[in-house]
């Protein structure tokens, strides 16, 4: 049986449509995985921060015998943050914020100890901590960039139809209140 021109056009359109749905679906899956992976990446960096703090406290203790209270706060804040590891952002956030504050106070105090800054192993630790703060910030930034890409795909036409069809939902941005946004100033020089 011979196909009419109209039939060919209809079949062509269906093929195009199915092709689009497949590619849009795959893109949405990729974006969703990117968002999930971005979330885990934040946890990885927070873990790294927790692991560095005992070393730092150990190294500076000898120099900063007068700052026991601040050091104790840092250690306690770290312990609370470690407890929230892997429990999700809602629980981890307050503890991390507390830790950020305590670390900020410690860094500010360290400015008063020139011997400390001259110590090579402390300087190395400070670079690692400064880098970790950056990594946490950058992993959050990447997470939010991924969320934006996914949400744009979920909202914009026509991929929003595919998203609704297969139940892709909005991802939520990582947000922190202004307090934590003022990251501890780590001066290396």
């Amino acid at each position: 049986m011979e196909l009419k021109l109209g039939q060919i056009i209809v079949i062509g359109l269906i093929v195009l449509l199915v092709g689009y749905v497949i590619s849009a679906y795959n893109r949405l899956v990729q974006l969703r995985n990117q968002v999930r992976n971005g979330w885990r990446q934040i946890d990885v960096q927070l873990k790294r921060r927790h692991d560095l703090i005992p070393n730092l406290v150990e190294s500076v203790q000898g120099y900063m015998s007068h700052e026991r209270e601040t050091l104790r706060q840092v250690v306690e804040a770290r312990a609370r943050a470690v407890e929230t590891e892997g429990k999700g952002p809602e629980e981890a956030n307050p503890a991390e914020q507390l830790l950020t504050g305590a670390l900020g106070r410690l860094f500010a105090l360290m400015e008063n100890y020139p011997d400390l800054k001259a110590n090579q192993s402390v300087a190395n630790l400070m670079e690692e901590l400064a880098s970790t703060e950056n990594r946490i910030a950058f992993s959050r930034q990447h997470y939010n960039d991924s969320v934006m890409a996914k949400n744009t795909a979920v909202e914009s036409f026509p991929s929003n139809i595919v998203a609704r069809l297969f139940g892709f939902r909005h991802a939520t941005y990582f947000e922190i209140d202004t307090q934590e946004r003022a990251a501890p100033q780590v001066s290396l020089r």
Binding site: Q34, N37, G38, Q41, Q45, N124, E127, E128, S131, N134, R135, F138, S139, Q141, H142, D145, S146
Partner: peptide, 16 residues
Amino acid sequence: EPILHNVVEEMAIAAG
């Protein structure tokens, strides 16, 4: 080169 390594890793994290 710890600093260079750190900076490269930070940027890789930012870019995913």
